[in-house]
């Protein structure tokens, strides 16, 4: 994840408390989704950014996961995101996200 984004995630986790923070990812690929999810839970796996060695354990979802869709306004999701369900490999993304959450999410 971009170094500046890592810095902001870390700042907000400190500011509002990690239990009050949810990260929503919009990556088009399972690999990139997992990388971002790992960064905000276990720490930066690339050892480059401010989250290196920092295990925030944040709640993290992909925007197309059912848990998220259940809470979004249907019409807004339809307008803003739905088309991408035909583009991305959602099953693979869900699998990766669930795996990261079960291992590293603390809240």
């Amino acid at each position: 994840m971009d170094l500046e984004n890592q810095r902001r995630v870390k700042e907000f986790a400190e500011q509002v408390g990690p239990e009050n923070l949810v990260v929503i990812i919009g990556a088009g690929e399972a690999g990139a989704s997992a990388l971002a999810a790992e960064t905000v839970t276990a720490g930066d796996p690339t050892y480059a950014g401010p989250l290196t060695g920092v295990s925030l354990g944040l709640k993290v979802y992909h925007v197309c996961e059912d848990e998220m869709k259940a809470e979004f306004d249907e019409a807004i999701y339809e307008d803003q995101v739905s088309m991408m369900e035909m583009v991305i490999d959602l099953d693979e993304i869900v699998e990766q996200m669930e795996s990261i959450r079960s291992q590293f999410t603390k809240y």
Binding site: F12, L21, A27, E29
Partner: peptide, 11 residues
């Protein structure tokens, strides 16, 4: 509080 991390070629 939500942090959105989007992708140029995703969402």
């Amino acid at each position: 509080k939500v942090i959105a991390i989007g992708d140029r070629d995703g969402i």
